[in-house]
Amino acid sequence: MYDPATMTKTHWKNPDAPRPPTPWDEITPGLWMGGHVYADADGELCPAVVTDEFDLVISLYTRPGHGPGPAAEHLVGEMPDAPLTAAQLDTVRRLADTAGRALDAGRRTLVRCYYGYNRSGIVVAQCLVGRGATAEEAVGLIRSRRSPWALHNRLFTAYLDTGLDAAFLLAGPDPLP
């Protein structure tokens, strides 16, 4: 889908990726990963609307009417499910750090994107890396808890394998407007 205001691809429909069967899944205690849509028992696409289930919601994609409710803190860092700029990689790092601090404070945290596979996956994986996991361990845990399709964007797993600090430096400065 393209945002006509910025002409930036915010998500793509991968015809091979199945719709997630749940709106969100717990990856580690207090840290959840999900999307804005999921498939019901009949395979129909349903909206995943957040109300008051979480204390902090981090959205890498937004859609009107999908919450969260007024009691939750909501951080938005929209980015494409595509190559990331240095600024977007920095956003991933900052949101992952924020998620880690929220967990340390005992806050139930949801990180979400469209399906809850790639963009949410890179933030959750980076959060886990910041808590001592290797990139491989983080990706494996996410795939076992959310979906084998989680982090199927190979570029995102390459960013994690390289390390987001190094990927940020390799991405170089973003072009001037």
Rank of each mutant, 00 (worst) to 15 (best):
D25H: 09
M7R: 09
G67H: 10
D174N: 06
W32V: 00
G163H: 01
E53M: 11
D40Q: 15
I58Q: 07
S144Q: 15
P80Q: 12
W12C: 03
T62R: 12
E137I: 00
L151W: 04
T6L: 05
A102F: 04
V37C: 06
G69Q: 13
A150F: 04
S120I: 06
R154G: 03
D3W: 02
A125L: 00
P21A: 13
G67P: 13
R154W: 00
D81A: 09
L95S: 10
V76C: 05
R143C: 06
P173D: 15
G100N: 10
G106Q: 11
T8G: 09
L75R: 01
M1W: 11
G132P: 07
G69C: 12
E53P: 08
D42T: 12
W149H: 10
G116H: 02
A99R: 03
P70M: 15
D3L: 02
P47A: 15
P175R: 11
H36V: 07
S144Y: 10
A41E: 13
L128D: 06
T134P: 01
V111Y: 10
G77M: 14
T85Q: 11
R63A: 02
F156V: 00
V111I: 15
T91G: 01
A87V: 00
H11M: 13
Y117E: 01
N14Y: 06
T8P: 02
D81M: 05
Y114F: 09
A135Y: 00
Y38T: 07
L160M: 08
T28R: 14
F156S: 00
E53G: 10
V92K: 01
T162W: 03
V124E: 05
T10D: 14
T157P: 03
N153I: 04
Y115L: 12
T28H: 13
A87L: 02
